[in-house]
Amino acid sequence: MKNEPVASQGPWIIRNAMWLGTVAIIIAYAAFIEWFWGWLSIFERWQKAGWGAAVLAIVLLLGTYVLRTWRIYDYFSAETKGRFGVLLRLVQVHNLLNVMMPLRTGEASFPLLMRREFDVPLARSTSALLVMRLFDLHALLAAAAVGKALSMYSEGYGGWVWLLWLGFLVLPAIAFRMRGQAVEMAEKILPTGGRGAKLERLVEEAAAGLPADNAAFARAWGATLINWFVKVAVLAWVLVLLCDLDLGAAFGGGLGGELSSVLPVHAPAGVGTYPAGITAGAIAFGASTKASALEALGQAAVNAHLLIIMSSLAGTALSLLVAGRRRT
């Protein structure tokens, strides 16, 4: 009988190892910030900037979550029609899991939630998620390339740098136009027989996860551009308020932080990696590397990261209320 608690303790730890590890990393990060700077000095920057600015920034970030939900609502219009509140809750839970879990493992929740709530096949929702993540990554890289093109143009490289940027910008449209050829090629190389038939159905489901037509593609791509422009602009504005960066460096900081969250490798809750991405992006776009400037930038980056976490938590809480009202 004495062995039963010990026996049950082992599986519980294994089942919750990822969450326990996440909590431990967050606690260690909080302790490091307290030891290195002190949380009081971190929050004092908001006292100088004004807490009203923090509230406004969170409201604007919440707006990007609503736009992100609309993108999926439009993408799966037949399945989600009339259930925007439920979809908003799903998107916010997925976003929170993505923020809190390491190595993009939270992404796996999206197709599972879409199947449970809207009966969308796993292959289709996974394909749609991949397309949307490629949209997100491309939009961020295109935005970052604007800064690089401006720098190269000012150094006398000529207008051809903008032609290169424009070519990169339209890559998603070119890829979408070639989707039919890609599906046909995949079907040709599939084996015949029972296994081939299963793989063919999988290819069909994956193709169904692409935008239905040119108009749907344009809406999804337009929503992506607006979403990331607003989010990066809000982060840049916050960095300007908190550490007196010039706008170009602040823009680079916002891009760096978001790129660190989109790429496959990031820490649980983005602790360490998100502020590091902001710092690296700001320096790449011309921020000062003097000790005092780096200290101010580091503290501002931590505050910007906290803002992202707070907006995710607030968005999840509000989406639960919205979904609850729609069910009654």
Rank of each mutant, 00 (worst) to 15 (best):
R201Y: 09
E79L: 13
Q9W: 14
H94V: 12
L90H: 03
W160N: 08
P11M: 04
G180R: 07
I226Y: 06
I174W: 05
L87F: 03
G156P: 02
T64Y: 10
F168H: 01
A142E: 03
R15V: 10
S292A: 11
V23E: 00
I58C: 13
G252I: 02
G298Q: 14
K290A: 14
W228H: 05
W35P: 03
R71C: 05
L190M: 15
A233C: 09
F36R: 15
E107R: 05
L190I: 10
R124K: 15
E295S: 15
L88C: 07
N3D: 12
G21K: 08
T22G: 09
D74I: 12
A175Q: 01
M152Q: 09
F285W: 06
Y274A: 13
I33N: 02
M310G: 09
V183N: 07
R326D: 13
V238M: 06
I278T: 11
G106I: 01
V161K: 10
I309P: 00
I14P: 01
L88Q: 06
A175N: 01
F135E: 04
A301Q: 03
A208L: 12
S77E: 15
F110I: 06
L130M: 15
A269K: 03
D74E: 14
T316Q: 02
A296S: 14
E184Y: 06
H305E: 07
G106Y: 00
Y73R: 10
W12N: 15
